[in-house]
């Protein structure tokens, strides 16, 4: 499955500045692993050591928060749009 990932500003140093990248994976977890393969270092900013999405990171599949789907086991299909969004809105 080829999906498009929107990358937030703080993580663009891993994607050579790109705000969108194309990766593969039939689940969110597989997608994140492929993202790490292509952009080393990015996954640990999104997931903790136990394999859970960090509490201050929200991952959306076609606009739906994966916490309300099947989390990292959420299935993906070709052309899905993924957004990785920091859970905060920045400076005070």
């Amino acid at each position: 499955m080829s999906v498009r990932v929107r990358v937030p500003t703080p993580l663009r140093k891993f994607t050579q500045g790109s705000d969108e990248v194309d990766v593969n994976g039939d689940t969110v977890l597989a997608m994140l692993e492929d993202l790490e393969q292509k952009h080393p270092g990015i996954k640990e900013r999104i997931m903790d050591e136990s394999g859970k999405v960090r509490r201050f990171v929200n991952v959306y599949v076609n606009g739906d928060d994966i916490r309300f789907l099947q989390n990292v086991d959420t299935a993906l299909k070709d052309g899905d749009s993924i957004s990785i969004v920091p859970a905060i809105a920045g400076g005070l």
Binding site: P8, T9, P10, L11, K13, R45, I46, R54, R55, F56, V57, P86, A87, I88, A89, G90, G91, L92
Partner: peptide, 14 residues
Amino acid sequence: SEMHGLEGLKHMAS
């Protein structure tokens, strides 16, 4: 880190 959840605070280097 530049990717953080501390609303209101800034990671200055990024």
